[in-house]
Amino acid sequence: MQGGDHGGDQGRTLFVRFNQTGGCFACGTEAGIRVYNCDPFKETIRRNFGVAQGRAGALQSQGGGGNGKGHGGGGVCAFGGIGMVEMLFRSNLFAIVGGGEFPAFPTEKVLIWDDHQCKWIGELGFHSRVLGVRLRRDKIVVALKNKIFIYNFEDLKQLQQLESVDNPLGLCALSSQQDKAVLVCPGLQVGQIRIEHLDHRRSNFINGAHTSNLACVALSLDGSLVASASEKGTLVRIWRTTPRENTGEYLEQELRRGSDRAQIYSIAFSPSNAYLAATSSKGTVHIWPIISSQHDASQTLTTVWKRFVPDYFNSKWSLAQYRLGDDSTSACSFGTKENTLVVITSSGKFHKVCFDLAEGGECKKISYISFSS
């Protein structure tokens, strides 16, 4: 199957996600996939996947560009939808899941696409819909509604299977650092976070991380910190992935997005773990400084006062903010400089902004590009 039709209408954007370092991002559309470099902004890959409509009404995917021949005497549709695409850094390898009204592939499968060879090199099948996929150089993680599967990337051999509470968003986060393989996902109870140290087959559970279902989780690049938000969306909490030796506690910091409910779409740590950003259904981006409790002189007092003062006053408000102008699904990632942030939306908008590290306030727009056409 050959890929490479660089023309034609890609249709509606179904999915947007940064790669592990935030230097580029991939989109799943109603026709295939697109990949963009962030700095400078540039489309680098466009692959369309045609869909053959068989006589029995079953959809069968054809090669990139939609040039494959139909099966069972059926014709070939102009496009096939991609509901999920996960990049492996800047390599030629992608994990792809069908999606949209006319999926290019069954939504119960994860296919591995080698864009250099323009061919499929692997496939994982399941009995229910795939809700999340994460990659690192040595592992593939697949999230279903109540299960998390971990595979060896080289031979697709299953390494582990984890149970989870209902996880309709397919939440999971996987560290990218080679010497620290950490997986974070919902635990076995509502609001519980599971931290799996894959190299050591060791599990840690943060009980009562939130009182309601998790809505978003994210790991720092070095795998030392995890951020989480619940479906309420008013708070983002930062946790250690290993407990403190002296207290056994995981909580590092509590950040406040606002007082109204909202869905947190994405959370991102800066490369140095000095800042954290989050986007939400309010169409806003919030940025906070991260202060390790090990260096926070007021930590002891804060711990005491938390017994008496409501969470509203304990949590830290954002340093800087930015308004996207729409409430479509969005993702954020820090740029090459500590004070720059890139935000992409499923409405096909690219925002690059900067903020004052000392004063904060409203972010300054550096560039704005529409990539939906």
Rank of each mutant, 00 (worst) to 15 (best):
N246K: 12
T234G: 00
T284F: 08
Y322I: 00
H351C: 05
I264C: 09
S330E: 06
T279S: 15
P271E: 11
N314T: 01
D311H: 01
K282Q: 13
Q253V: 00
V309I: 15
S318Y: 12
L235W: 03
A297H: 11
S318F: 13
L319D: 01
I291E: 10
S281P: 04
G283Y: 06
T329P: 02
G248N: 11
W288P: 02
D296E: 14
R240V: 02
S333E: 06
G348R: 03
K349R: 13
S292D: 14
L341D: 03
E254R: 11
K232H: 09
F350W: 12
T340V: 00
S281V: 07
S330D: 08
G348V: 00
H351P: 01
S330A: 15
K337G: 05
P243D: 06
G325K: 07
F308K: 13
Q253I: 01
V285L: 11
C332D: 07
L276D: 06
L319K: 14
E252M: 14
G335W: 05
L319R: 06
T303C: 07
S293M: 03
R244K: 13
S347Q: 09
A278S: 15
K352H: 11
Q294E: 15
K282A: 13
F308L: 13
S293Q: 10
R323Y: 07
V285S: 05
R257N: 08
F350Y: 15
R257L: 15
I291Q: 13
Y322F: 15
Q321D: 13
D296S: 11
Y312W: 03
E254L: 08
F313I: 04
V236F: 08
R256K: 15
V309N: 07
L276R: 03
L324P: 01
K316P: 01
T303V: 07
I287G: 03
R240S: 09
R261I: 06
T284A: 13
D311C: 00
T303H: 05
D326E: 14
N314P: 00
D311F: 03
W288E: 07
N339A: 06
E338P: 07
T302R: 15
T303G: 03
K282H: 14
H286S: 15
E254Y: 00
Y312A: 10
N273Q: 10
D311Q: 11
G348M: 04
T234I: 07
A320Y: 05
K337D: 14
W317K: 14
P289A: 08
N339C: 08
A274E: 11
S259C: 11
L341F: 06
L276E: 05
D327T: 13
W305N: 11
T241F: 06
T279D: 01
K337F: 10
R256D: 04
R240Q: 12
E249F: 10
P310S: 12
N246M: 10
K282V: 01
T284G: 08
A278W: 03
L255P: 02
E249L: 12
V285A: 10
T247W: 08
Q294P: 01
Q294D: 14
Q321V: 04
Q263M: 12
K282W: 09
G258V: 02
F350C: 04
A262H: 07
I264A: 05
I264Q: 01
I267K: 05
V342H: 07
A274H: 09
E249C: 09
W288N: 03
D311Y: 02
F269D: 09
G248L: 12
A277V: 05
A320I: 02
R307S: 10
